[in-house]
Structures are given as C-alpha cells and as structure tokens.
Amino acid sequence: MPPFTFNTVGSIVFGEGAVSRIGALAAGRNWRKTLLVTDPGLARIGLVDAPVKALEATGVAVAVFSDVQADPPESVVLAAAELAVSFGADAVIGLGGGSSLDVAKLAALLAGGQEKLKEIYGIGNAKGPRLPLMLVPTTAGTGSEVTPISIVTTGASEKMGVVSPVLLPDVALLDPELTFGLPAAVTAATGIDAMVHAIEAHASAGANNNPVSQALAREALRLMGGALERAVNDGSDRGARADMLLGSMLAGQAFANSPVAAVHALAYPIGGHFHVPHGLSNALVLPHVLHFNAEKAGDLYAGIAPIVFPELADMAVEERGFAFAESLAQLSRRCGLQARLRDVGIPEDAIDLLASDAMKQTRLLVNNPRPLALEDARAIYRAAW
C-alpha cells in the first residue's frame, strides 16, 4: 500500500439541536471574544440570533460580520479579518454556507497579522498560526467545515484557493435543524456538489488518494444517494436532512485528502463569469466530465455507481461508468436543476473563454484521472451547452 497522509478536523459535534451547545463549547475552550462570520441573508432571517445569545449567555462577547457574499472577493475576506483585529477577537466562528466558512477560515488566519492574502494562494503556502476556529454549516454541500481549503474570487472573475492544513478548524458543529429551511433548489444544487466531492475524491489521480478517503466517499454516496430526492421533495424530512449533512461532511473529509479534479476546474469559470451557484455549475458539467473520464476511470465509476443507483448493479462493468454519468444527469433534472449551460443564460460564444479559464485551474486538473487539454475542455463545454 502506498504511503498517505490523512488530516481532518480536531472535533466533530453532530446532532439535532447541537447549535444550542455553541456557547458551552466556546466557553469550555476559554474563548472570550469571538468574531462570528455569516451572510446578510442568515442575519436577516434571524438564524444568527440564537447562536449569539447562547454565546453571550456563557460570557462570550460576539462581533458579527454579516457581509459575506457568494464567491467572496478578496475585499470581503480582508474586511472580516480587520474586524477580528479591531474587536480583539480571540476566536472565529463561521456560520453559513461554504462562502461564510471559507471567509471565516481566512479571517482567523489573517487576523494574526503574520501573513498576507496575496502571498498564501496555492498549496501549503499558509503556515499560520491562526485564531481558534469553529465552523457551523447551514447547507449540506460544500463540506467546508472539514476541509483545509478556502476559495476566493480574485479580480473580476478568477477563483484561487488557499490550501493548507492550518485552515482545518478546531471544531466542526453540525446541526441538521439549521438546514430545514433550505429551498428545494439550494438543497438540490448543494447536494449534487457534495456528491461530486465524493465522486471526484474516489477517482482522484492525486498522489494522496487513499483508502480512508475512498471509504468515506463511498459512505457519503450511500447516505446522499438515498436522501437527496427526499430532502428536495420534502424539506422537513428529518432523516433525509441528517443524512445529507453527514454525507456532505464525509465527502468533505474525503476530498480534503484526495483532491477534486476536472468537474470543479470547469465549474469555477461558470460561477466566476456568470455568477451561477457553485453546486449548479458542478451539476451542469458533471455528466460530460464523467463521460470524458470514463475511458480511463470507467472501472472506478463502475464500482461506486450501484451505491447511488442500485439498478445499475446488473449492468456490465464496461457500460456502467457511462450509465452512471447519465443517471446523475437524470437525478439533477428530477431535482429541478437546469440541464444545460444555455438554460442559465450562458451564450455559446463564451465557450472559448470558459475553456481558457478552466485550464488555469492546474491545482485541480492535475488530479483528473484522464489528462485534459484545452480542446477537451472546449468539447466538454460544447456538450454541456
């Protein structure tokens, strides 16, 4: 067995109502002044109020930064870090979707004042130290609460990643009740995103693809494959919500150590240029990337296909990988997601731009099980259009 490294979060707290323990968890770690990072939507609907009260009830002072936006630009990250410094925060809590959690990670890191954002993009450039960190997801999709990755929009549209074990939080607090109010469309898009994490981690060509990540990816797909449509069709299905949140976290642990690849590389330019939500961007290119990869990774896809779609178990192995791609496309459509790039307003003449930008995602493309050139990217976008 080749050597590998598996890193993950220090502590995981999971269960309905777990967010009510946030104050006790913070106080038990001797946190006294915390920065809570979230987005304006969650602040507006009052989802932040109970955690703030729970923190304050245990003697923990709170400053709320609620200016996170989707695909956060550098300015948002820097503003959050500045508030942490001016408030004198001794810890950071991220509450929300992947963007809020990513901003919280970098705020905790940059508040130390020893590193500059522009100098830490890439793998292993962030060294720390950082402020203590707790992450509380409100969507079942990104798995950001257990990953050492933070994605930032630089310039007008390009996305870059900070990847370092120092970004792994001290505590991941997962409460399925926080996902009960998610709209069906968000549930579907974030759910497909989490499934992509598991699929790409399992088939990753990264040198650190390992049996722990593969086992987590398979369990994540088992949980989410049986729960996604139920959660979309009935947002109050408690079992489905719990399975989706746990599955998303397991997928996050998997791809945090066995990195994702071309699906994400081709999805990022879609979100960067046309502001399509990340999960939906993944769904739009997913079946077409899998079709492309099946020539090299067909056996890997065939092995996990029946976990999600048991009816594929009786199909010949050489056919199962391609059937897996089509079954995922059908699942996206049943969940109400748009099927083609044109459906989300992307013009055909943008294909060259998207392909060119996708090729800049070398951090991800190197993990793809089949080498992908510029013309391959163009062909995949054309098929998705």
Rank of each mutant, 00 (worst) to 15 (best):
S11E: 15
G113C: 11
D170W: 07
A377Q: 03
A215W: 06
I346K: 02
Q361V: 03
A313H: 06
L280C: 12
A205D: 04
Y121H: 10
L364M: 12
L312A: 03
Q361S: 08
E348C: 15
R334M: 09
A201C: 03
V76E: 01
R230E: 09
S213G: 03
T153Q: 05
A107K: 02
M244A: 12
E311N: 13
A70Q: 06
G10A: 15
T187L: 08
S327T: 14
L135H: 09
G191I: 06
R130I: 05
L223G: 01
A156I: 15
V68S: 00
R218V: 05
A57S: 13
A61Y: 11
F292C: 07
I304F: 04
L245E: 04
G143S: 14
L290F: 00
L106F: 10
A81V: 11
A24C: 15
E158D: 08
A261T: 03
I346Q: 02
A350C: 10
G225W: 01
T139S: 13
N368R: 05
N210Y: 00
S75C: 12
R44K: 08
Q330C: 14
Q253F: 08
V344Q: 08
V85W: 10
F309L: 02
A339Y: 05
A205N: 01
A80R: 04
A203R: 00
I307W: 00
A316N: 07
